[in-house]
Design a protein around this nucleic acid. Structure first.
Lengths: 130, 130
DNA sequence: GCTCTGCATTGATGGCTGTCGATGCAGGCA
DNA sequence: TGCCTGCATCGACAGCCATCAATGCAGAGC
C-alpha cells in the first residue's frame, strides 16, 4: 500500500469500495425491522413488559389500559401493532380479551442481536457458527 | 366466582382492573425504545449486519454506501442514527471513516428480550421489586 | 497554495405514525 | 328483548421520519 487506502480487513482487492455480498438480504431485513419497529415505542415496550411480567403470561386488556395516560383506543392500537408483529397473541374469554407473549418472536430477535453479522436463518438449519 | 370475572392470575382482589405496578418505568422504556427504533428500519438493520459481519468489526463507509440503492447523504443519515442509539461508533482514519459495532448495546437489548417482564436495571441495583 | 475526494450537514418534501373522539360490535345480564 | 360493558375500528390531525439535491468541511496529493 503506497498511499492511504481503506484497509478492507481480509480482502484488499481494489483498495476500497468492494461491494460486499450482503450477509442479510433485503427481504429478511424488511421483515425483521418490522418487529423491531413494533418495539420502537415506549408505550409498546411497557405493554410487552406488563404482559410478560404476568405469571402465566396472560393479562386482561382491562388491566393494561389504566396503566397508561392514554385513551382506550390508543392502547388498543398499540396492542394491535404488537400483535401484527407477532410478538403477542390475543384470546377472547367471555367479555374480556387476554393477551399473552409469544416467546418465539423475542427469541428470534435475541438470536439476531447475538450474531448481527450472520443471517438469522442460518442457525436454524445448522449449528456451524464459528 | 359466581359471575364471569377476568382471572387475574395469582391475584383476584377486586376481579379486574387492578392497576399493577409497572415492572418497567417510563423513563427506561423511553430510552430502550430509542434503541429499538434505530433497528426498526431495514436499511439500518442491513447496515448493522454489514458492520458486524466484517472481521475485526470495522468497515469503511465507502464500502457501505454502494451496498444500497440510496444516496450517500441518506446512508450517512442512517449511520448517524445508529451511532446516536449507541449501537455503533465511528473513527476517522485519514480520508476514510470507519464504523464498528458496540456489542454492549446489542447485549443490552438481548437481555431485555430474554426477560421482558423484569426491569433491566433491577439486576444491577437491587432485587427488591415488590 | 490549489484541487480532488470522502463524508457530514442542511433544507425541503412526501409519507408514515401516534393520538384522539366518535362509533361499532360482541358478550353477559335482567 | 333491551341494556350495559369491554374492546376494536374509523376518520381526522399534528408531529415525526426517510429520502433527496445542494452544500460544507476535512484530509491527501500535486
Amino acid at each position: 500500500m503506497s498511499k492511504y487506502e481503506p484497509v478492507a480487513t481480509g480482502q484488499d482487492t481494489s483498495g476500497c469500495c468492494t461491494p460486499l455480498a450482503a450477509p442479510m438480504n433485503p427481504d429478511e431485513a424488511a421483515e425483521l425491522s418490522q418487529v423491531f419497529k413494533a418495539l420502537g415505542d415506549p408505550v409498546r415496550l411497557r405493554l410487552l413488559s406488563l404482559i410478560a411480567a404476568r405469571e402465566g403470561g396472560e393479562i386482561c386488556v382491562c388491566e393494561l389500559t389504566p396503566a397508561f395516560d392514554l385513551t382506550q383506543p390508543t392502547v388498543s392500537h398499540h396492542l394491535k401493532l404488537l400483535k401484527q408483529a407477532g410478538l403477542i397473541a390475543s384470546e377472547r374469554r367471555g367479555t374480556w380479551v387476554y393477551y399473552r407473549l409469544l416467546p418465539e418472536a423475542t427469541d428470534r430477535l435475541a438470536t439476531f442481536l447475538a450474531h448481527p453479522g450472520t443471517s438469522a436463518e442460518i442457525e436454524a438449519t445448522d449449528g456451524t457458527a464459528s
